[in-house]
């Protein structure tokens, strides 16, 4: 099921996210990878689950293998594909492979730099940027590869992209967003936001572009995590107010508190957007309470 069909129907689209494990899927399927367990706890509460592509440039199970594994379990995946590790040949081939294996939704992005990950001496590829990747993906849908050669059975998948509302200067990020839309982006998932005012300023401009936006939320699990993200995760700022609030309760009560905080924030943002993308970072079990607090339920 393509997410674009849901947006077209006016549904509030809810997606979650899992990171593939550092390791392979067990051949006898007797031990399910932790990421599959997380995906199952999201099942029924979200429309689809993003599967990250070697996120933070840390080498892991491939996003396509994990996406296909979810699909086989009846969970709709959003296959993430980055420019970091593949040249234009590999990117196109992976898009064709993804469609051939039943993938309906792809999120096309630049990817975190190799220096942020666990293979710092690897060669960064970045043959294309995310705008060029979107343009190339649209070309495949229209029946030709990036060189103009015709292809058989053109893939028909929904193409999503990302945008960072926290970026300064915002005008520059919006320029990139416009270019992504011109190139073929059909929906956006945003970087994690914690500041209502910042997000409102962004949406006031983004709404003019007429493409569905899902607000990105990273579940804040502890004050330590907030401080860690501020120091180490680029493009995200967790305000001290959030850090203090999650730290105001004992460890045992933090899941409940996180659900309440994220849920209340989402309830305020909900009228501005066409969906939400929740990145639970291992706390998939709090997603239902977040949605409940925000008064969101999926069809």
């Amino acid at each position: 099921m393509k997410l674009t069909e849901l947006f077209d129907k006016g549904e509030f689209v809810v997606t979650g996210e899992i990171g593939p494990i550092k390791g392979a899927i067990n051949r006898d399927k007797s031990i399910h990878p932790t990421c599959a367990k997380e995906a199952r706890s999201l099942h029924g509460h979200v429309h689809a689950v993003n599967v990250t592509d070697n996120q933070s440039a840390v080498m892991r199970l491939g996003s396509l293998a994990a996406s296909v594994a979810l699909k086989q379990q009846g969970i709709e995946p959003v296959y993430q594909l980055t420019c970091r590790d593949r040249n234009r040949i590999a990117l196109q081939s992976d898009l064709l492979t993804a469609y051939s294996l039943g993938i309906d939704n792809v999120l096309l992005l630049t990817g975190d730099h190799i220096q942020l990950g666990d293979h710092k001496e690897a060669k960064p590829v970045f043959d294309l940027d995310s705008v060029q990747l979107l343009s190339m993906a649209m070309g495949l849908r229209k029946g030709h590869d990036i060189t103009g050669h015709p292809i058989e059975n053109p893939p028909d998948m929904a193409y999503g992209a990302v945008v960072n509302p926290n970026f300064e200067p915002l005008e520059l990020q919006l320029l990139k967003m416009r270019k992504k839309i011109d190139a073929g982006a059909e929906f956006f998932q945003t970087q994690a936001v914690y500041d209502l005012e910042v997000f409102e300023t962004f949406m006031n401009e983004a709404v003019k572009l007429g493409v569905p936006v899902q607000v990105g939320l990273v579940v804040l699990k502890s004050p330590q995590m907030g401080r860690f993200m501020n120091a180490n995760v680029s493009g995200i700022t967790v305000p001290s107010m959030w850090i203090e609030e999650i730290g105001s309760v004992d460890k045992d009560d933090r899941k409940k508190k996180a659900a309440e905080m994220m849920g209340n924030f989402l309830r305020q943002i909900k009228p501005m957007v066409q969906g939400v993308h929740i990145m639970p970072l291992g706390w998939a079990d709090v997603v239902p309470s977040i949605l409940e607090t925000a008064e969101i339920s999926i069809q």
């Binding site: 420019c83 970091r84 630049t110 990817g111 975190d112 730099h113 220096q115 942020l116 960064p124 970045f126 940027d129 995310s130 705008v131 060029q132 990302v162 945008v163 960072n164 926290n166 970026f167 300064e168 520059l172 990020q173 320029l175 990139k176 270019k179 970087q191 680029s234 493009g235 700022t237």
Partner: peptide, 18 residues
């Protein structure tokens, strides 16, 4: 750092590279 031709990635913060 990523040799992007169509604008920045989302990683910069306060004008600094990720």
């Amino acid at each position: 750092s990523k040799q992007l031709l169509n604008g920045p990635c989302g990683g910069a913060e306060k004008g600094k590279c990720e």
